[in-house]
């Protein structure tokens, strides 16, 4: 029997989307995902129990704890998936057959990133819809402010994924996880650190704290949870700033990861 004949002639976007699709499939078949979703559902239930103990705050506690749960669980999943899927591809050499095809390393990372961000988007949407349903049962109607807060959590997770991929591009899973977790915590504390520095009265301390705030990703910019709790819509300028900042961070971080990735030897 003769071998079948075919001819190649594709465009990189098809490759990127195909890699994204495979990443999505790999992510949804990961058991960790279901355990974290279970944990989130448990958190909602605990919030429901706590809600009965509060007076005049019906639904607020559920919403507050629920959004915090989506945020933390989402962050855990983002760090875990980004690092494990990328480092596993490298360690198991699954990457080799992909990079031996006419695929640029940047296209590979971009596809991986898009697949992860899409997965996180679906995950946040599922958790947000579940929380909204739970709130409705308790008599609290989450509105547009709630949807915006959930959307911004997703944007933050997209930035966190890019940070994780940057570290995973040059180091092992443990260190990459620790570095990303560190940046996640600092990213939420750097505003407070800057304020403390400014209020200290020490110009050097103020300058250092400001430098830290500017140099590291400011993840607090994506925090729209208070507005969702009060049911007030955030200012358009704040929203625009968060969107632009998130997009810029993601592009810069993925580009930096790609720069490292393209110079790496895959033994």
């Amino acid at each position: 029997m003769s071998l079948p004949v075919g001819r190649a002639g594709g465009i990189p976007m098809t490759q990127i989307l195909s890699i994204a699709q495979v990443t999505w499939r790999e992510a949804v078949r990961n058991r960790v995902l279901y355990s974290v979703l279970f944990f989130t559902a448990a958190l909602f239930l605990v919030a429901g129990v706590l809600d009965h103990m509060t007076l005049g705050q019906s639904g607020r506690v559920v919403l507050d704890l629920g959004l915090a749960g989506i945020h933390l669980c989402g962050a855990f999943i983002a760090i875990f998936l980004a690092i494990s899927l990328l480092t596993r591809d490298i360690a198991r050499k699954t990457l080799h057959v992909v990079l031996a095809k006419p695929v640029g390393r940047t296209a590979y990372l971009a596809g991986k990133y898009l697949g992860l961000v899409f997965t996180l988007g679906v995950l946040v949407a599922v958790m947000a819809v579940a929380l909204a349903g739970f709130c409705l049962v308790l008599g609290q109607t989450p509105g547009l402010a709630y949807a915006i807060a959930a959307g911004m959590i997703w944007l933050e997770l997209a930035v966190l994924t890019a940070i994780a991929m940057l570290f995973a591009a040059f180091t092992g899973p443990f260190l990459a996880g620790m570095f990303t977790l560190g940046l996640f915590l600092i990213g939420h504390l750097s505003r407070g650190l800057e304020s403390l520095g400014a209020e200290s009265g020490d110009p050097a301390l103020a300058a250092v704290s400001r430098l830290i705030h500017l140099a590291l990703p400011d993840l607090a910019v994506f925090d729209f949870k208070p507005a969702a709790l009060h049911g007030t819509l955030p200012a358009a300028a704040d929203l625009g700033l968060a969107l632009a900042y998130g997009a810029a961070c993601a592009v810069v971080l993925v580009a930096a990861a790609s720069l490292i990735f393209t110079r790496r030897d895959f033994r």
């Binding site: 190649a8 098809t14 790999e26 095809k101």
Partner: peptide, 27 residues
């Protein structure tokens, strides 16, 4: 290219796997 002791995306079925690699080749 066929690597020594190949390791592939084993969550994919054979058809999905080949379809993925066909995409990478632009088919």
């Amino acid at each position: 290219y066929l690597p020594e002791q190949p390791s592939f995306h084993d969550h994919l079925t054979a058809a999905e796997f080949l379809s993925f690699h066909a995409d990478l080749c632009g088919i």
